[in-house]
Design a protein around this nucleic acid. Structure first.
Lengths: 181, 181
DNA sequence: CGGTCTGGTCATCATGTGATGACATCAAAC
DNA sequence: GTTTGATGTCATCACATGATGACCAGACCG
């Protein structure tokens, strides 16, 4: 936007791939997303993924970091936060972070990055509030399950529910016994 | 065991494939399990999967049904049931049913079978007790998330926790506000 | 023995996927 | 205008995977 669009713009291609990667990885996960899919969605030749990110895994890591500044880490338990996250899930899919909370990755680099991301973005603030890592992680896992199921459609009532009703149910069940100080 | 082992025994081969399929699908999910893996684990040629089950998908469906009579549908909320399910998860992996609660399947036949299985085994009894499909499904999704995360190792405290402590945390968070009538 | 059937093995195919490198093409520098 | 480097395109490779069918090998029967 700052400059006239050049006809051939590496930065633009890179950004398009990054965005497409975020969308597709969030929606389908790493394995189910092919580099050809990403390229098509970005309107860019898939070979450029290798050029700009080294590999599909490189793109995935870049997507992970790109979302970093996206949502400020906050408390998962507050109803407002639950609503916000669910809104985001409805709009963009579960997202790589929530998704990988429930599925180990083969690549150790990816696994380490995901663990760090999860910790920083979701577990740490919760653990600080709850004073208990285990309970914090259980909550994150449980919420991830809801987010994934929302998109999977395997649980019809959950998948089809009105978002407000879902927020109520989630807050009632998960947030209930927590520190409603 | 009932008869002298015949050197060539179709029933035994079939059963071995079924068992191996249950183990591997439970542990890694459908996509991450190859027919060659199943064959190797069963000590049987993978081509026999096609012969006895038609296809990998057929084997998967057979595994789904084979687990049917395994655990009697019961209430997910009782601490005893939570402990029992987690024990099973620790021993055998999350299992196809919990796993697919969170991941849609391409094949419509499989998807339909999974939905039915989930409904019958987990959602229905809970919904009967809660009087609310949505809350029942949220609970199932949340518990599935915990079960998957337990195996994935992405949440270290959850993955490494003593099972008793985990049961406490899960029951405290998920079972807390429920119908402790 | 000879025939036939069932159970098992193996080579092979078709497809999808990530990756790679040669080539083309545009744009800026001179 | 020519050169040169950046950018993009394409064909192709290597590999994994699911599937298939031809073939082999025991078993049972006459």
């Amino acid at each position: 936007m700052t400059e006239a669009p050049r006809r051939r713009d590496a930065a633009a291609s890179r950004a398009a791939l990054l965005q497409a990667g975020q969308d597709l990885f969030a929606d389908r996960g790493f394995d189910a997303t092919t580099v050809r899919d990403v390229g098509e969605r970005a309107g860019v030749d898939p070979a450029l993924i290798a050029r700009y990110f080294g590999s599909k895994t490189g793109l995935y890591l870049a997507c992970l970091h790109a979302e970093k500044g996206d949502a400020v880490p906050d408390d998962l338990l507050t109803p407002g936060r639950v609503a916000e996250l669910l809104e985001r899930v409805d709009a963009r899919g579960a997202g790589p972070v929530l998704r990988t909370a429930l599925q180990a990755h083969d690549d150790p680099d990816v696994q380490a990055a995901v663990v760090a991301e999860l910790r920083a973005r979701l577990v740490a603030p919760l653990a600080a509030r709850l004073g208990d890592d285990l309970r914090a992680e259980v909550l994150v896992a449980a919420f991830s399950g809801v987010a994934l199921a929302r998109g999977a459609g395997t649980l019809p009532a959950l998948a089809g529910a009105d978002r407000d009703a879902l927020v109520d149910a989630v807050v009632g069940l998960l947030g209930g016994p927590g520190p409603q100080e």
